[in-house]
Design a protein around this nucleic acid. Sequence first.
DNA 1: AGAGATTGATTGACGCTACAAGCAATACGG
DNA 2: CCGTATTGCTTGTAGCGTCAATCAATCTCT
Lengths: 164, 164
Amino acid sequence: MSDGPWLSKDELASWMRLVAVLELLPGVLDSQLRRDDGLMHFEYFVLAMLSEAPDRTLQMRDLAARTNATLPRLSHVVRRLEERGLVARTPCPQDRRATNASLTDTGWAAVRAAAPGHAATVREYVIDALSPEQVDQLKGISAAILSRLDPQGTMAPAYTRYDG
Amino acid sequence: MSDGPWLSKDELASWMRLVAVLELLPGVLDSQLRRDDGLMHFEYFVLAMLSEAPDRTLQMRDLAARTNATLPRLSHVVRRLEERGLVARTPCPQDRRATNASLTDTGWAAVRAAAPGHAATVREYVIDALSPEQVDQLKGISAAILSRLDPQGTMAPAYTRYDG
DNA sequence: AGAGATTGATTGACGCTACAAGCAATACGG
DNA sequence: CCGTATTGCTTGTAGCGTCAATCAATCTCT
């Protein structure tokens, strides 16, 4: 039942549900962060990646890789975050073409303030909906899909950080 | 290990991978449809929902529910699809406030032309990355998450269609 | 039947993302 | 070395999504 491009009925039932999750979940995450912390989910993700980096600093290029952003997109986002005082950009000493983005103290405080509410949302809509076995299955399924979506492991620094 | 808002290490490992999938997968779907068929994934989804409806027609309100679109967003999208000849809008006879969106023959042909390539992409990046057991687990996991994201079953017509 | 509230849909303005072009610094090849 | 290509990033433009405002039609209550 897995010949040709078409999907079997069981595969379709699985896929359609995943599509619905893809449609609904980002909106829920965005709404909560936007309402409670004035951040889009992608902005929160950028700040979170910086907060976990050495010196809370990453080169734009590396930050773009971890967040799956194009460099233009990241440039716009970081400029806006800088205008709000959450991030600072400094020229990279090693390579004068490069720019380092650093989390400011204000940005660090913003991430720490936003994290509990965000985690609670993730728990409410995802983790607490699943059994412990399903949480484990989800890790395996996501990892398998990521091996196709991200074969080079470009985003791996973002998602392998909490592995045992 | 599931008290308080914080996530355990295992839960985080699972969640971070799902976040990466949420970042990467929509882009892959969009790129393929855009490149091969000149459609965004959301446009394809709208056309697909219409193609499965009786008379290939749905009231804007129902179409918005199935696709998780706000009515303004759907209005813009349908206007553009209508300008391209893929969809036709007609006043609803029963309720003169309402508008029916119908798939034209051109739109029907466009969906049918796009479907195989789209299905192949889904297979390549998702289904074929998983074992049959994982495909089944994914259905259960997605259904559990949807029970939280969509407790009213607003999108259910879209994702229960292929259930045995 | 009439006033007010609700529903269904459209429109316009603004913000974010993708794409293309551009500039500066570095690496490479003769 | 010098010229070219490549890398890293920024800027400008166009397109899509969101929100608020708007309008028409329907429903509700008396």
